[in-house]
Design a protein around this nucleic acid. Structure first.
Length: 211
DNA sequence: TCCCCGATTAACT
DNA sequence: GTTAATCGGGGAG
């Protein structure tokens, strides 16, 4: 088919990869052989000089994969509760990655609901933690090769014209909140949060009504 | 070794 | 719209 994204696709800045991933499909093959498919509608870029990046302070046991070659999965546990998956970008030695935040489920919905409960299809992959739960992705898949492996990969699906892509501040980020590195398919109903919605400010004077 | 806090979600009011 | 839950990472001491 030749639709599968090759390693070269990821060997560039996450700022280019993140919007380019919109409209591509993530294919996951469960251990029992069940195929899952979902179409990406929301991503976030994380760059080497990025205070919000897990790798900003250098390599650690957790983020090792981010410093490796592109086209691999970086999976971490957030808030001690949910897993989030990223695709490593750039060149080896440079920590750059794209967080997969939300997608439209297309195939294997029953298998996803088996893991997530009988939630509406719209909620199966709406948010990074929900998506990894639906796709059975956890730390065990940290480092998985998505360019050459058989567990999870990406396929070119539909083209999303630049006019339909909107960028905004990343979700849940406190530092470098000014960098508009969250990319969404504007009209999608599968976004984790409505496009344009700002993350709630941490108790600050500005958020308090001045009566 | 301890302690704080986060690339969040679900269940509330 | 708000908030509790939950736990591993990593900086500080």
């Amino acid at each position: 088919m030749g639709r599968r994204l090759p390693r070269s696709f990821f060997r560039r800045s996450s700022l280019l990869v993140a919007p380019a991933l919109l409209g591509t499909d993530v294919v996951r093959v469960l251990p029992d052989g069940t195929p899952l498919r979902a179409r990406i509608v929301e991503t976030e870029a994380y760059e080497p000089d990025d205070p919000a990046s897990h790798a900003f302070r250098g390599p650690t046991a957790r983020n090792t994969v981010m410093f490796g070659p592109p086209g691999h999965l970086y999976v971490y546990l957030a808030y001690g509760v949910h897993h989030c998956m990223n695709i490593v970008c750039g060149t080896e030695g440079v920590a750059s990655a794209v967080l997969l935040r939300a997608a439209e489920p297309l195939e294997g919905l029953e298998a996803m609901q088996r893991r997530r409960g009988a939630v509406p299809p719209r909620d199966l992959c709406r948010g990074p933690g929900r998506w990894t739960q639906a796709f059975a992705v956890d730390r065990a898949l940290d480092g998985t090769d998505v360019a050459g492996g058989q567990d999870l990969w990406l396929e070119r699906a539909v083209a999303v014209s630049p006019q339909r892509i909107v960028a905004g501040p990343r979700i849940g980020i406190t530092s470098a909140a000014d960098r508009p590195w969250r990319f969404c398919v504007a009209e999608s109903r599968f976004l984790s949060r409505p496009e344009g919605a700002l993350s709630r400010p941490r108790s600050s004077a500005a958020s308090r009504p001045s009566r």
